[in-house]
């Protein structure tokens, strides 16, 4: 599958905007990504190992939080996973 790396995290992924890897599930893909690029881990996960609240994961066009199996969802080589930090604000 292909994991798209957002602009702020490319520095920690060898400058790449996308990483190709083989993994059976979303969680496994994230594990493989952070094994290959350990500096990414603290930007994606809390010290307790939970995905940071402001980090959104989209499997193709679906929010992983709302998939029935969530991060245990099976993936194929044709799937894309987008890491998208939250964007909001106001005066």
């Amino acid at each position: 599958m292909t994991i798209f790396i957002p602009t702020p995290l490319r520095l920690y992924a060898g400058g790449q905007d996308a990483v190709e890897l083989d993994a059976p599930t979303v969680a496994d893909a994230l594990e493989a990504l952070t094994q290959a690029h350990p500096d990414l881990r603290k930007h994606l996960f809390t010290a307790e190992g939970k995905l940071r609240a402001f980090v959104n994961l989209y499997l193709n066009d679906e929010d992983v939080r709302y998939l029935p199996a969530k991060e245990a969802t099976a993936v194929t080589s044709a799937d894309t996973l987008s890491i998208i930090p939250f964007i909001a604000g106001g005066n």
Partner: peptide, 15 residues
């Protein structure tokens, strides 16, 4: 006084 961009819209814009 608030804004928020839907993440799925951001995914499509980035793509």
């Amino acid at each position: 006084n608030r804004y928020q961009i839907a993440p799925v819209e951001l995914v499509k814009i980035e793509r």
